[in-house]
Simulated scan of single mutants.
Amino acid sequence: MGGSAFSAILPASALPRIPPAVYQALKARLTPRLQTLYSMVATPYEAPEKADHGDLDLLVCGPSDGAKEVPHATVQTLLRAKYVVPMPGNRTSNYAVPIERGEWALLGHQAEEEAARRCAAEDGQQETYYQVDVHVCLDESEWRRLNFFHGYGDLGIILGLLARSRGLALGSTGFKIQHHPRPPFELTESMDNVVQYMGLSMERWNAGFRTKQEVFEWVGTSSLFDLTRFRTEGPGISKIKPGRKMYAGFVEWVKEQQRHSKMEVAPARSREDEDEQIEHALRYFGKKEAFDALEREEADRVRLKEVFNGNSVRTWVGLRKEEWKELKMIIDEVRRRAGGEAGILKILDERGEDGVKECVLQAAAKLGVL
Rank of each mutant, 00 (worst) to 15 (best):
G339R: 07
T211R: 14
Y129H: 06
Q257T: 00
A8F: 04
L59G: 01
A120T: 03
E297I: 05
T232W: 04
L146W: 02
A5K: 10
H135E: 09
A207D: 09
T36N: 08
G318P: 07
A81M: 06
R244E: 08
N311C: 01
G339M: 07
V22K: 00
E353M: 12
R164F: 07
W316A: 06
L58N: 02
V60P: 02
L361R: 14
V307W: 04
A96K: 07
K245E: 13
Q257D: 02
E333Y: 02
R166S: 06
F148T: 00
P184K: 00
A25F: 00
T128H: 01
A342F: 01
F285S: 12
A14R: 05
V70D: 05
K212C: 13
D154H: 03
V369I: 15
E326I: 00
E272M: 05
A364E: 01
E323D: 09
I278F: 02
V302L: 15
E112C: 03
F185T: 08
R351H: 13
E189L: 12
H260N: 11
A116C: 04
A47Q: 15
R101S: 14
V132K: 05
Q76D: 01
S7L: 12
N94R: 03
I237M: 13
Q178E: 10
I18S: 11
